[in-house]
């Protein structure tokens, strides 16, 4: 069986970010399930705040082109999405918005978001596990960018105590939501590998 290639990153670059911990754990579970995982940090893909004037004068930043091409080498993309004031982080939104502007001749608009499967999850110190931010992010990805997003999401509430020393999830409910997400993610990405 072919191993689906899956790209994993977090919408936060803060040292000790709970969502980066979640991204690391999801990557590990995907590898254990035989996926070929690439984990990156958005810190390595810096982009200025989107500005239409700048785009017209200089085009999209090189990091956006690099990340777009990297996404296109994968059948699946998992994004751990921190919730800031009930919504997506500026870092992640800025990245998605720059990527949405890129398509080579012959490609559809927002090409990085087409032809692959997306999955999202969140870790939050609150009791709701970042679900409000995930709902908004779903709309951006699906309605805004035309991405195909699986319904299963992993949510990690009370994130400060959620991970054990090995970086595994302690909470059984979070673990169950992660297992369901990984299962569907693998079957959908395999169908495209």
């Amino acid at each position: 069986m072919r191993h689906p290639r899956i790209l994993v990153f977090s919408g936060s670059i803060r040292g000790g970010s709970y969502n980066t911990q979640l991204a690391a754990f999801v990557a590990k579970q995907l590898v254990l399930a035989d996926a070929d995982v690439t984990r990156i940090s958005l810190a390595d893909y810096p982009m200025p705040l989107y500005d239409g004037d700048q785009e017209r004068e200089k085009g999209a930043p090189e990091s956006a082109h690099k990340l777009k091409r990297l996404m296109q080498e994968h059948q699946g993309v998992f994004i751990a999405c921190p919730e800031y004031n009930t919504a997506i982080t500026p870092l992640l939104k800025n990245t998605l918005d720059w990527l949405s502007r890129l398509n080579d001749p012959g490609e559809p608009a927002a090409a990085a978001f087409k032809g692959r499967i997306f999955a999202i999850g969140a870790a939050s110190t609150g009791a709701l596990g970042g679900i409000r931010g995930l709902i908004g992010t779903r709309t951006i990805l699906e309605v805004g960018l035309g991405a195909f997003l699986i319904p299963e999401m992993v949510m990690v509430p009370n994130a400060a105590d959620a991970f054990d020393d090995k970086g595994d999830l302690r909470n059984e409910r979070s673990m169950a939501s992660l297992d369901a997400m990984v299962k569907r993610f693998l079957s959908e990405t395999r169908a495209r590998a």
């Binding site: 309605v143 035309g146 195909f148």
Partner: peptide
């Protein structure tokens, strides 16, 4: 009817776990 569709998408995906294609 796009507002109703956004609402229905949420019901199907996060409510009952259905896979809904992005194209509407």
């Amino acid at each position: 009817g796009i507002r109703g569709l956004a609402n229905l998408r949420l019901v199907l995906e996060t409510g009952v776990g259905a896979l809904v294609i992005p194209e509407m």
